[in-house]
């Protein structure tokens, strides 16, 4: 699965239709007696269908419906394109009473740090994070490097001696740059805007290093070797892969499933949505999906999530200043 890709494929203007939850009875009876929501909630996903952000939105939306956590269904709408600009425009068209929300991740912060769209943190109210995951840095299995230190030593001796597959201005680029700035090395880049591109370039020997979602790495099974994990603690599925922090580099990156509402949404509504999401992320089925996909299921309430995002944004802006 293409966990952190900005674009699914270079040619991918083909688009994909809006979609939503399967048909089912609209549960009017179970939920608490309150006015919100009074119609289906539109969840805008700024990517084409099929990726992690889309899948998580659908699974959680379906859980909310089947468990009756809200008395209306959630309908996922895909609005890919323009680094989220399409999705934000779509959100602005909709209601500001909580019936139009977004499910995004920290690519939003990168778009803000790169000053791409006409949106900023002030345009949103954060509903919260429903878990997230961290990536690994990977070389080919037959590579001469067995540890991150080998790799960094080589790069320090041969500056720009290795090729890193990144999409400039995407998460792999920023995460790689954070480590490069911290450890003091430099790589050459080759454009790879999707997880699929990175995979084919590394496996085919056209790039030496690439960033993958831990689940993508595990699914590949052979041909790749992970050198470092960017989470704060080691991943249980990858007990032998050290974290960057352990190796003495103060770099960590966790990409959350971030739920956002327009800035003017009433607080009670945001709280009602947050409560439903918190209950959904605790559900055993969702937890199982997260575990199988090396994601951590957790709940971060809106304010905390916003504070974390603010801090991340500042870090990303610092990186953006060095790459522009």
């Amino acid at each position: 699965m293409l966990q952190i890709s900005r674009k699914i494929a270079a040619i991918g203007a083909l688009g994909a239709l809006v979609l939503a939850m399967p048909v089912g009875p609209i549960g009017v009876q179970k939920a608490a007696a309150q006015d919100f929501p009074e119609k289906p909630i539109e969840v805008i996903v700024p990517f084409k269908p099929g990726g992690r952000t889309d899948t998580v939105a659908r699974l959680i939306g379906e859980k909310i419906q089947s468990e009756g956590l809200l008395n209306q269904p959630m309908a996922v709408v895909n609005a890919d394109g323009g680094a989220g600009a399409n999705a934000v425009n779509r959100m602005r068209r909709g209601d500001e009473d909580g019936h139009t929300i977004m499910h995004w991740h920290h690519q939003a912060l990168i778009a803000m740090a790169m000053e791409l769209g006409d949106f900023d943190l002030e345009d949103f109210k954060s509903i919260g994070y429903t878990g997230g995951g961290s990536p690994v840095w990977v070389v080919r299995e037959d590579s001469e490097f067995d540890t991150l230190d080998d790799l960094i030593a080589h790069l320090k001796q041969n500056p720009r001696g290795l090729v890193e597959a990144v999409g400039i201005g995407t998460i792999p680029h920023f995460v790689g740059s954070m480590l490069a700035n911290e450890a003091g090395f430099e790589t050459r880049y080759v454009t790879a805007n999707s997880g699929a591109d990175r995979l084919r370039l590394v496996l085919g020997g056209n790039a030496d290093i690439a960033l993958f979602a831990a689940s993508e790495y595990i699914a590949q099974g052979e041909g790749l070797k992970a050198l470092v994990y960017f989470g704060r603690d080691r991943l249980p599925d990858l007990p032998d892969v050290p974290t960057a922090m352990e190796l003495g580099y103060d770099v960590s990156w966790a990409n959350p499933n971030w739920w956002l509402a327009p800035a003017s949404t009433p607080d009670e509504t945001v709280a009602a949505l947050g409560a439903a999401l918190e209950a959904a992320i605790g559900d055993p089925d969702i937890v199982e999906y997260f575990r199988n996909n090396t994601l951590q299921p957790y709940w971060t309430p809106g304010d905390e999530a916003m504070a974390d995002a603010q801090k991340q944004l500042e870090a990303l802006q610092a990186v953006a200043a060095t790459i522009n």
Binding site: V18, L19, A20, M21, V23, P40, E42, P73, A75, V77
Partner: peptide, 8 residues
């Protein structure tokens, strides 16, 4: 199809 089935 769009509205009933898919809530769009």
């Amino acid at each position: 199809i769009l509205e009933r089935f898919l809530y769009i």
